[in-house]
Each structure stands twice: as structure tokens, then as C-alpha cells.
Simulated scan of single mutants.
Amino acid sequence: MSAADLIETTATAGAAIEQAVAVFMLHPQTYGESVAAGYENPLAGYVAGRGGVLGDATGATVSAAFAVFEPAGLSAMWEEGIAVRGAAGAAEVYWNQAAEFGRKYLADAQGVDRIAALGEKLIAVAPIAASPLFAGWRAMPLAEDAPARALQVMFVLRELRAGLHFNALSLAGVSPIEAHMLNKGPKYAAMFGWPEPYADGADKKDRYEDAERATNRRMAELVDEALDAAEAQELARLTAAALETVKANVPS
């Protein structure tokens, strides 16, 4: 496989993983489970849950790790969330939610055991430097059953790519709001808590695209270290199929 083909294959897997985990994170079922667990504001449950692996950190520290959220709002949701079960307790709740989501919606997906196995090989070789959320989630114990484990592994891989991408954006001098505007636009920027008016980042489009290429290139290097060409293609194929299974199975 050529370097260009490996980058494309890796990007395909990365996109499928990002979207599949986003379905879990954004689904009303997940929000409902967070409310049932004591988080009156399900977004506070999300922030405390995802950020809980950082430990008893300040809101500013968690905001820095999340990177693309408006800092003041993110910090407030963190404080609200950790008041319920603490940081570690929130992470445990969220991790169990991810496992249950996988059991419910990935049970009939093709090759979930292979997604987990191949993903774990990639996780094992990836450095944790400057990727605190990846470092925290990598240390969490994985479920034993394949559907749950597969979604959890994809969750960790999503944090790996996100950490690399946030670093690439920072080095490129692209701010979080500029990245949102260059990626999915004002509705997405609003979803992440940013107030108008928005800096559109139009003069940094080339920098944003360079950061995206740098992220894909670095992920491909890690895939090349962990997997052979056939395994890299298998991971891309199976994660794409898993995404389609999730879309088909999860109620709208």
C-alpha cells in the first residue's frame, strides 16, 4: 500500500469512528441515561463524563483539553457535572453508557471483535504526549463482550485523533471558532457554545486544510506502526460497516 493509500484508508476509518461515537454522544437515549444517573443537565453529564478521566481538574484545565468548546460555558458544565458523582464517578457512568450503547446497537455488526482487536493494537502504540483525554480513556478497563468493547475502543481512538488534530490546529494558528466555521459552520459553532459574531477564518482556510492533512498523516504513521496493510484496510472496512449498522439500528 502506498503512503497516499494508507493516509486515505486511515482517514476513512477515522471519519467512521468519529461519526459512530458522535451518534452515542449526541443521542437522546444517552442524554436520558445521564438524567437518570442524576445529571439534571445532560450536557453537564457529558462534560463530566468525558472529562472525568482528567481527575479533579479545574474547569479551565478541562476546557483546555476539550479545546473546541467555549471555555466559560464548558467550565460551568464541568463544575455542575462533577458535583453529582465526582470526576471518576462521572467517567465510570459514561464508560458504562458507551458499553451499553454498543451492546444494544452493534450486536449484529460485522466483525466487532476485529474492530476491538485491531483498534487495541493501534491504541497500544500511540503516544499519550499532549493528548490528555486519550491518555485518560486509554487507561480505562474495557468491556469483555465484543459489541461493547468495540464501541469503547472506537471512543478511545476518537480521542486519539482529536488530540492530534487539536495540536495541529494550534500549531497552525487556527482558533477553535475559526475551525468550527471552516468545518461545519455557524450552527456547529453555536452547538459548542460560541457566541456571535463568529470569526469566519476565511483567511486561514489553507492552514486549516494543512492541519487536517497533518492529522491524517500522523494517524497513518501510527496505523503503519501498529497494523499491516491488510489490517489497516480491514479496520477501515469494518468501522464503516459499524457506522452503517449504528445508523440503521439507532432510533431517530
Rank of each mutant, 00 (worst) to 15 (best):
I128A: 10
V125D: 07
A64P: 03
S34Y: 15
G49H: 07
G52S: 06
V68C: 03
Q19M: 10
T58V: 01
N41A: 08
A124L: 11
Q29D: 15
G59V: 00
F24K: 12
E100N: 12
E70G: 00
D56A: 00
A60C: 01
I115E: 07
R50G: 03
E70H: 05
V62T: 05
K104M: 10
D113N: 11
G45W: 07
L74N: 03
P28K: 15
S34A: 15
P42W: 04
Y39V: 09
G32Q: 11
V21S: 07
L74E: 02
Y39C: 00
Q29N: 12
T12C: 07
G45A: 05
V68L: 11
A135I: 01
Q110A: 13
E40I: 01
T58K: 04
A88V: 02
A99M: 03
G59A: 06
F69S: 08
G49I: 00
A129D: 14
D108T: 12
N41W: 05
G86P: 07
A67W: 03
D56T: 08
A83E: 06
L122Q: 11
S63M: 01
H27S: 13
E120P: 03
N96I: 01
A117Q: 13
V21Q: 10
L106S: 06
I123Q: 15
K104S: 12
E120R: 15
R114Q: 14
A124Q: 14
E120S: 13
F66A: 09
V93E: 13
A116H: 07
Q110E: 13
A87S: 04
S131V: 02
P132K: 08
A107S: 14
Q97K: 10
A99L: 06
Y46W: 14
L122C: 14
A60W: 04
A15M: 10
A130E: 15
G52C: 02
A116T: 12
A126K: 01
A109K: 08
Y105A: 01
L26Q: 15
G38H: 07
L54N: 01
V68A: 05
R103S: 10
Y31R: 14
F101Y: 14
F66L: 08
R103A: 15
Y39Q: 06
F69G: 02
F69I: 04
A67G: 07
A117P: 02
A37K: 12
V23F: 12
A22C: 08
A13I: 01
S75H: 00
D113W: 05
F69P: 02
F101T: 00
I82M: 06
F24H: 13
A15S: 13
A130T: 04
E92T: 08
S75N: 01
A130C: 02
